[in-house]
Design a protein around this nucleic acid. Structure first.
Length: 103
DNA sequence: TAGATGACTAATA
DNA sequence: CTATTAGCCATCT
């Protein structure tokens, strides 16, 4: 079972520094699979490493968070990100300032 | 094997 | 601005 793709997703997410966020598409692109953004989200859905992978730092392309986040509440992650130094644009993350581009 | 599903994204109304 | 449609493709049943 070589779920390299998933493993890579976890590694990439763990690379995100505090106060930064990234998108599913960016991670997918980083893995050379720009169309697998959904599978990235799926990888986090399965999330074999809860608490180890900061999935709350992964957001939508427009900066919005998941509508059905599973950390205890959608407001929780907003507060969590804000606590890390991330600023918000009403209900969305300020991607212009906190978008972490994987290299 | 085939059909349905989904923590995505872009385009369209 | 929000809502819907369509395309994408690995995983699930």
């Amino acid at each position: 079972m070589k779920e390299n793709f998933f493993e890579n997703v976890y590694e990439a997410v763990k690379l995100i520094p505090e106060g930064k966020v990234t998108t599913y598409g960016e991670i997918a692109k980083f893995l050379s699979c720009p169309n697998l953004a959904r599978q990235v989200g799926w990888a986090l859905h399965k999330n074999p490493y809860p608490g180890i992978v900061p999935c709350h730092r992964v957001v939508f392309r427009d900066g919005s968070l998941s509508p059905a986040f599973a950390f205890g509440g959608d407001d929780v992650q907003k507060r969590l990100l804000k606590s890390e130094g991330v600023t918000f644009k009403e209900d969305k993350v300020d991607m212009e300032k906190h978008f972490f581009r994987l290299t």
